[in-house]
Amino acid sequence: MNIGVVTFPGSNCDADARHASAITGNTVHSLWHKDASLPTGLDVIILPGGFSYGDYLRTGAIARFSPIMNEVVRFANAGGLVFGICNGFQILCEAGLLPGALIRNRNLSFVCKDVFLRVENTDSPFTNVCTAGQVLRVPVAHGEGRYTASDEVIKGLEDAGQVLYRYVTPEGQQTDDANPNGSLNNIAGVTNTARNVMGLMPHPERACEALLGSVDGLTVFHSLARHCNAPVA
């Protein structure tokens, strides 16, 4: 696959995203926030984690007006695969590509640790190699990851199977203790109605090598490859 990784001022997981994309057999394209066009032939765009524009005003609020975001929105609306990780998720919500918003963690603390995610729907380009209910171990690192939306929006997401990942115990139980930030319904990752855009607060790109403690993040890259009929390294 051809994967583009956007760097905004303040992105700090862009190198990790490029590395994880490369070791899974993809051609990586570095994209810059001021770019006014995309390379041809991109299969996936990743908006990486970090603190774009210093999180000024709100997380993602200024990044969403970067020149490249016009292209990302156009790419997504044409069916292109877009994956926002952590700050990338926040940017996608601000840009209106995903519903809801991410606000200050329930306990007001920055949370940085491994969490367990249950795959809620395997019928998506991001989860198709997983088994339903599979539990993944992936790190989180965020201060504003509490997913919120109106009751109607949450119900719509749940009914349509747009919640792709939930925070759970290592045994796969959805409990309040397993929720690191107070997200509604323990939501960790959602997709849009067309299922070509996903936002995820945890960092699968940091869980792609055994040396780092988990390879469960590979499932996202392998799913994208399967969806695109692309080879996997």
Binding site: L57, A61, I62, F65, P99
Partner: peptide
């Protein structure tokens, strides 16, 4: 447009 997010 910018200063607030109506979702929250």
């Amino acid at each position: 447009k910018l200063l607030t997010n109506p979702v929250m």
